[in-house]
């Protein structure tokens, strides 16, 4: 299964599952709206490739690669 950190800039995908080893981070991500079935769009990456910015539920969120690796996505498509 694909993870969010592999998604290309400009593409969007649907969240399948948040699989963090840290339960506190997992709950925080879900509470920020990253739950199953949510559309997420990768907007850009920082100049050094990390962290990245995604758009979700109408607002922008920045995540490090390592955190984005824990978010499984499906149904990728270009904008």
């Amino acid at each position: 299964m694909k993870v969010l950190s592999d998604a290309k800039v400009g593409s969007s995908a649907e969240i399948a599952c948040v699989q963090c080893s840290d339960p506190a981070l997992r709950v925080r991500l879900m509470e920020l709206g990253l739950v199953r079935g949510t559309r997420v769009e990768v907007l850009r990456k920082a100049p050094l490739g990390d962290p990245l910015i995604v758009r979700i539920r109408g607002y922008e969120l920045s995540l490090r690669r390592i955190e984005a690796q824990a978010i499984e996505v499906s149904a990728e498509g270009s904008k």
């Binding site: 840290d22 981070l25 607002y59």
Partner: peptide, 12 residues
């Protein structure tokens, strides 16, 4: 300690 997550809202 563990690296705290960098999950941050970018406000408009």
């Amino acid at each position: 300690g563990p690296t705290p997550p960098f999950v941050m809202e970018l406000p408009p």
